[in-house]
Design a protein around this nucleic acid. Sequence first.
DNA 1: CCTTTACCATAACCTAGATTAAGAAAACAG
DNA 2: CTGTTTTCTTAATCTAGGTTATGGTAAAGG
Lengths: 215, 215
Amino acid sequence: MDTSVLLQHLSDYIELTPQEQEHFCQHLLPKKVAKRGFLLQTGQICRHSFFVHQGILRGYTLDQSGGEHLLSFAPAGWWMADLYSLFSQQPGQLFIQAMVDTEVWLLPKQAQEQLYLDIPKLERYFRILVEKSLVASQQRLIDNLSRTAEERYAQFERRFPDLISQVPQKYIASYIGVTPEFFSKMRANWLKRGNNSVPKKLSSQGCLPEAFNFP
Amino acid sequence: MDTSVLLQHLSDYIELTPQEQEHFCQHLLPKKVAKRGFLLQTGQICRHSFFVHQGILRGYTLDQSGGEHLLSFAPAGWWMADLYSLFSQQPGQLFIQAMVDTEVWLLPKQAQEQLYLDIPKLERYFRILVEKSLVASQQRLIDNLSRTAEERYAQFERRFPDLISQVPQKYIASYIGVTPEFFSKMRANWLKRGNNSVPKKLSSQGCLPEAFNFP
DNA sequence: CCTTTACCATAACCTAGATTAAGAAAACAG
DNA sequence: CTGTTTTCTTAATCTAGGTTATGGTAAAGG
């Protein structure tokens, strides 16, 4: 397992000297998690940020009646965490699960704090990522308040062209906030209406670079 | 107009020397905006962060059919901005309006960037605020996906006890994502059921300190 | 003082999407 | 290759919340 994907990501935002890269990487712990395996479960304290080197993670919660609500996907090149729990070091409510066999780098909370002091540029890196996440999160809020399920799916399609063919569609339904049944119906209407932009393998250029999920 | 509220807020997160405080304050511009006045409108580029010294702001968007969707309130002691526009310096979609006569401090984007370099502690300050905002935004997303309108109102009540008696309830309705009519109906049922926790002047201790809105 | 402009309440009706319940079709394990 | 599990589809019924409409009260404002 190598750090190339992560270092590339860092270099999109800040410039680190080879020594700084070295120092950063010393704090990383590799981890493999099999399909359906968990990196975190409700009630646990999130003690690491996870950087997805390969694979796909999802973060979701359960409501009172056991319904899943998918807060975020994290394909390769994304960070993931239960942010509430990570920042506050209180027990969180998120499950973080691998949707396929996945390899991640763990960055311990402690190390992250230390790195902010050792290499202030990293504070900038994570500030910018959090800013982007916040914008994305607010946009999703607005979309949930003001757009129909179909429009939300169209957004999703633009934002995550790759995921559509890679993850079961019930998870996509959960992300945009509808039941799998309704999602299926919606899709059927869609095809009937000739709006043929549904599953065809799209421009496979990875997820849009401005989309993040955490630090 | 004095900077005490803002400096107090800063000191909750970082310690600045008197000189640093002075340097920070030199970049601030005071502004008064009357009730219903706008600090920003759709299509404009957001060139400042706004710190509410006194009064209340709201940030909202319009959908295709002219419906308002309230993204955030900012009472005294909160930061406000169209974050997408501020970060990207592209035209935004938010209206930022005063709900009562309001006094704000403007922190120009340029100055903010410069201050990150001059006083790295400020980068930390804003990083932490953005982190908290992100957690709040994600929580609100989860709530919108998994809780009923009534539960969302209960949350709101806990989170913004003061606002309830200070702003017209149609705005609260918009914030939690229902129409004013439905909100009214809900409230009526509520009272009928004897759940008498609706408008009584609650513990007036200001908004919970962990709730933010931006930097 | 009277008018206008917010703001709030109530009620009848309507629709997007939930829920429940099946089956069909993949994916997967043995 | 066969049995099992997971995923997808379809369809009937149901409900939370939206829409439209109408009247009422409070408070700006001339």
